[in-house]
Amino acid sequence: MNDRQLFESYQRGLKREKKIILVWQLTILISFFALWEAASRFYWIDPLLFSSPSRVFQLIISRFANGTIFTHIQITLFETIIGFIIGTIGGILIATMLWSSARFAKVMDPYLVVFNAMPKVALGPILIVALGPGYLSIIAMGFIISVIVTTLVVFSAFNEVDPNYEKVLRSFGATRWQCFREAIFPAAMPAMISTLKVNVGLSWVGVIVGEYLVSKQGLGYLIIYGFQVFDFTLVMASLVIIAILAAIMYKLVEKLEKWLIKNRNI
């Protein structure tokens, strides 16, 4: 075999591996739904409680067809995205404040520890009392659940930047703020981007729990409503939609991550 043929056979190997993985992935997906459907049809599980894929998809299609699902999707998506954005930006801002004053960071340390350890959803009722039973408290849930983790991760990333970069800048007479802008912030960029991915998941948790508690609309509301009226097909359908939307959002953030890393010198 010559070089060219060796390379081609290597490429074929790669393609084959990719195919095998895809086949397995599809097998798992299809057998999961098939098993679910069968279990429901043959009464291995109670179809009233666990529904079945055919009924779930029927419901999703009819809801999409008559358009009643769109308001719910819109509202939940809006709350999640807003919660995600202000949670992330807020976390980065707080981390910047902590970095700018070592004394402030030390003062805040015990509060951050307590706040981080605390299950944030427990604050739900207080948020509702303070902000009213509406979007605001739901967005606040999405925010509060991601902001502290972001703060801690980004702050520690700021502190781990090689001090010699600062030394170089200081030798040019840079102020502390200039050091931050030229070295600390861009060097911590990968850490900040990785918090984006974590925060996508967290804001979904916050928003869905928030909707459980107060809302009259949204996917979380549909779940709790379906539960109350014993319509588990509706619960399952909402879950499927949430899974798909969350996955799409995650993929978009991944795209954003790649773009940011490529262009972080801007």
């Binding site: 090689d162 010699n164 970069y165 030394k167 170089v168 800048l169 200081r170 030798s171 040019f172 007479g173 840079a174 200039q178 030229e182 070295a183 861009p186 060097a187 960029m189 972080r264 010198n265």
Partner: peptide
């Protein structure tokens, strides 16, 4: 500080800046 030029053991070029931007860091500051 600009009277003094300081060179370290490693280059400590900023990996996210182009060479020209690295070189012009002092003037930028």
């Amino acid at each position: 500080e600009l009277d003094i030029g300081y060179m370290l053991q490693q280059d400590y070029l900023f990996p996210w800046k182009t060479i020209i931007d690295n070189v012009l860091l002092g003037p930028k500051i």
